[in-house]
Amino acid sequence: MHGGNVFETDALRLLVTVADTGSFTQAAARLDYTQSAVSRRIASLEKRAGGPLFDRLARGVRLNPAGHALHRHAVEVLDRLARAEHELTAIRAGHGGTLRVAAFSTANISLVPAALRAFLRSRPDVEVVASEGRSDALMRRLAEGALDLAVVSDYPSGLPSADGVTTEALLEDELFVVLPREHRLAGSGTIDLRELRDEAWLQDAPADRPMMLTEVCARAGFRPRKIVRIAEWTGKFGYVAAGLGVALVPSLAAWAVPAGLSLCRLDDLAPRRTVYAALPAAPLPAALELRDLLHEAAG
């Protein structure tokens, strides 16, 4: 086989059309070529293929064994290209394809699932790939093209930035405090943060990360007496239930607080954070639709 042009799309399409019609003349009419152009192109293809692909008959042409072999591959290649074109068109129109979504942990408790449920009802043909991570890492993944949409927040050290990534505020997330049911302040409704100055606090941030907890306590005029580092919410709730500490809980996570614990609002010193939808510079239509549903779920 000579040269690397045997598998050009136009040449393969011409081969298939001539084989289907059995005639250079009919193939020319179907493809809007002249008969001489078809003859020249088939001759060029046969030269590159290393020999004849058709038997020339008194009336028309038919594939020879080499032609049958190339025809089989040509049909497969053209079919795959057609399906690729169809899939890309569907993705750009917001139908089909894959949508890669990620969020920080508490956004995955109720906000993101509610939006995804509505999205999949209207777009069941879209495959959603969901994941979880910290906001700074999610912004980097968006910039690298590894995500189509992310839900991020400005906690603990401000909203991360990334080249080509845009953000839209979804909601302001107030932080509550969760207490054991038998705690003296359980069921109080709103609590003065200073009344918790003697408590042990459950906190997930590693030692090298800033903590909203220490900043908020400082504004209230005290330092946390003790910080117990527990990362997962299930572990935090277990420690609270055992009376081993109290924890700040975002309003996004309020739905997941076990019934045996007491969730209380804090006074004017209550810490808050803003939650954002983050998108790449050229978002998919499906990502824009999910963004709109996130706004609805946040509202």
Rank of each mutant, 00 (worst) to 15 (best):
E172G: 12
D173Y: 11
D173R: 08
L175E: 01
L175D: 04
L175I: 04
L175M: 06
F176K: 06
F176S: 07
F176M: 09
V177H: 00
V177E: 00
V178Q: 05
L179D: 05
L179S: 05
L179P: 06
R181H: 08
R181T: 04
E182V: 09
E182H: 12
H183A: 11
H183N: 12
H183I: 11
R184E: 15
L185F: 14
A186M: 02
A186Q: 02
A186G: 05
G187R: 04
G187D: 04
G187W: 09
G187E: 06
G187H: 05
S188L: 07
G189W: 11
G189K: 10
G189H: 10
I191S: 03
D192N: 14
L193I: 03
R194N: 04
E195F: 09
E195H: 12
D198V: 08
E199P: 01
E199A: 10
W201E: 01
L202E: 01
Q203L: 09
Q203C: 10
Q203R: 06
Q203I: 03
A205E: 09
P206D: 14
A207F: 15
A207R: 15
D208L: 07
D208M: 08
P210D: 12
P210Y: 13
M211W: 11
M212I: 15
L213A: 12
T214P: 09
T214K: 14
E215V: 09
E215K: 13
E215A: 14
V216S: 14
C217P: 00
A218M: 06
R219T: 11
F222L: 10
R223V: 06
P224D: 07
P224N: 07
R225M: 05
R225W: 02
K226H: 13
I227F: 00
I227W: 00
V228P: 02
V228R: 07
R229E: 06
I230C: 11
I230P: 07
I230V: 15
A231W: 02
A231F: 08
A231Q: 07
A231C: 00
G235K: 12
G235Q: 14
G235L: 11
F237G: 08
F237I: 05
G238K: 01
G238L: 00
A241H: 09
A241G: 11
A242G: 01
A242P: 02
A242S: 05
A242M: 01
G243M: 02
G243N: 02
L244S: 01
V246M: 02
V246G: 04
V246W: 01
V246H: 03
A247T: 08
L248R: 05
L248H: 08
V249H: 04
P250S: 15
P250L: 09
S251F: 08
L252M: 11
L252E: 09
A253P: 08
A253Q: 09
A254G: 06
A254Q: 08
A254S: 11
A254F: 03
A256Q: 05
A256R: 05
V257P: 13
V257N: 10
P258R: 12
P258Y: 13
